[in-house]
Nucleic acid binder design. Structure first.
Length: 485
RNA sequence: GCCUCCGUAGCUUAAUGGUUGAGCGCAUCUCUCAUGAGGAUGAGGUUGUGGGUUCGAUUCCCACCGGAGGCACCA
């Protein structure tokens, strides 16, 4: 079995914020879970760099555009490392491997007869040097430049999106293509009520972007180009990763770009004769301390700053537990601190600590051989993970942690004189911790490794999440798993 | 304006046509292996408001109030 998962590629005209971190962490957890199941996983993330806005932002910063996107893309790459992501690749849409494929697919769609020359008409603001929508106008003026736009006609190539309306509708009506269901309903009703118009897929008068293979005056519209990253990164059409991993099993994206991924992207693929992705999972947005993340509110926290302050595992843990799957959710430092101290340090860290100390004192640091009394329902958790309910899966794992703590209290090993009985209790605890370290690995990989190191064992797979697989080993009690904040 | 979704204890949330379950926080009790950790108990809800269907609604229907989201070239 293979599993190909992607995140959206990020816009590089501003540095990363906590929302980017959230999407990447979730995708990473899913990727790691599938690896635990023994599947061959490919996890892709990257940056979207051909937008016109980059050119403008670079101009404002008085740097060359290429240099500007290089700098900002680096910030996202650095973020991936800091988040401890297990991504297999990082695509940049300015890379030659991408521009080549973007042009190739554009040509393919053109050759199919699905791209034709027409005129794009709309309001054009001289200040923005761009078309703006009627909705964006305030009192008939561009709000940014306080100028009345002019009605302009521009030559443009159009993609016959309308041709694919029925096929796309049929696709999105299948019940696993768009998840969660709420997002599927939105797209279905919108498609049914509005229908599809052809899409302008080229722009003139731009210096930045990918030139169309059919007309040198035109650049490829940035969305048409951006979506293609999912196949260009794999080396479409001939390279091995493409053959092995396409179609994608999951495009993990935010709700703002649902339409592009579930309507436009499938239509492009249909036209180009490329197989369709299996699932587009649409997550919600994050608020920070209860407020929308926005520059004007000045609450844009650099996630790298947060990681340096708190370490990555508590952040991964808190952000996943705090945000209900598919919904918007809030991330706050207060909640992070709470969860770090109560759940990570007290429940889990202390469980390991008390277990290892008991083994140290009673069995000279050697895990005794016996039979475990605790079991864990892996099916339930795997089901939650299949359904992308990461928050609930993690809560379920925590129930097991709590069960272990209660087990110690009930059994009172510090009062037990009978050696066999004591062996059984401590084996049960150590073996349960072994299972916990596997289950937690996708969520908090560093912590999982620390547990294994102290138990002096290797990380298992999901198949090993059954009791009694722990062998007699000498433990190596180390530092506490978590520091309290 | 049109279309989704939501409104349950201070906060986050689960569930169901028939006496609303849980976690955090709070209060009390308790163990001592452990990171002043762990465990137990308790207080707290007429399930947004009004109406309807029903023997019975928090769950189904309608209206209203409140909140979130989507509405194509903006990513």
């Amino acid at each position: 079995m293979k599993f190909y998962i992607t995140t959206a590629i990020d816009y590089v005209n501003a540095p990363p914020h906590i929302g980017h971190a959230y999407e990447k962490i979730c995708a990473d957890v899913i990727a790691r879970w599938h690896r635990l199941k023994g599947e061959k996983v490919y996890f892709l993330t990257g940056t979207d760099e051909n937008a016109q806005k980059n050119e403008q932002a670079a101009k404002e910063a008085k740097i060359e555009t290429k240099k500007f996107v290089d700098q900002n893309s680096k910030l996202f790459e650095e973020l991936c490392k800091k988040l401890n992501l297990s991504n297999d690749d990082f695509i940049r849409t300015t890379q030659a491997r991408h521009t080549k494929v973007a042009q190739e697919i554009f040509k393919k769609v053109f050759d199919k007869g699905d791209i034709y020359k027409g005129n794009y008409e709309g309001y054009y603001c001289q200040g923005c040097e761009a078309f703006i929508t009627e909705k964006e106008l305030v009192d008939g003026k561009c709000p940014e430049h306080n100028k009345e736009p002019e009605w302009l006609k521009e030559e443009s190539y159009f993609f016959k999106l309308s041709k694919y309306q029925d096929k796309v509708l049929k696709l999105i009506e299948t019940n696993t293509f768009i998840l969660p269901q709420k997002r599927r309903n939105e797209m279905i009703s919108r498609l049914k009520s509005e229908g599809l118009k052809d899409l302008s897929v080229s722009r003139t008068n731009l210096d930045w972007g990918i030139t169309t293979p059919i007309d040198k005056k035109h650049k490829i519209y940035v969305w048409f180009d951006a979506l293609i990253n999912y196949v260009s990164a794999l080396g479409y059409p001939d390279e091995k990763p493409y053959k092995e991993f396409w179609p994608a099993d999951c495009h993990y994206i935010g709700k703002g770009i649902n339409w592009f991924h579930t309507i436009i992207w499938p239509a492009m693929l249909m036209s180009a004769g490329i197989p369709l992705p299996k699932t587009v999972y649409v997550h919600g947005y994050i608020t920070l301390n209860g407020k929308k993340i926005s520059k004007s509110l000045g609450n844009v926290i650099d996630p790298i700053f947060l990681i340096d302050k708190y370490e990555i595992d508590p952040i991964r843990y808190a952000i996943i537990r705090d945000i209900p799957h598919g919904e918007d959710g809030d991330f706050s430092e207060k909640s992070l601190i709470n969860r770090n101290n109560n759940e990570l340090a007290n429940d889990l860290g202390n469980l390991l600590s008390r277990t290892l100390t008991l083994i140290e004192k009673n069995f000279n640091s050697e895990i005794p051989e016996s039979k475990s009394e605790l079991t864990f329902d892996i099916e339930k958790i795997d089901k939650l993970m299949q359904n992308y309910e990461l928050d609930k899966a993690l809560a379920e794992i925590w129930k097991f942690v709590n069960k272990c703590n209660k087990y110690i209290n009930d059994k009172k090993p510090w009062e037990i004189k009978d050696k066999k009985e004591l062996e059984k209790i401590l084996y049960t605890l150590a073996d349960s911790l072994r299972i916990i370290s596997i289950l937690l690995h996708p969520f908090i990989p560093e912590t999982s490794e620390k547990i294994n190191k102290q138990l002096n064992i290797q990380l298992g797979t999901l198949k090993d999440c059954k009791p009694n697989l722990l062998k007699k080993t000498k433990i190596k009690k180390g530092e506490h798993l978590f520091k309290k904040i």
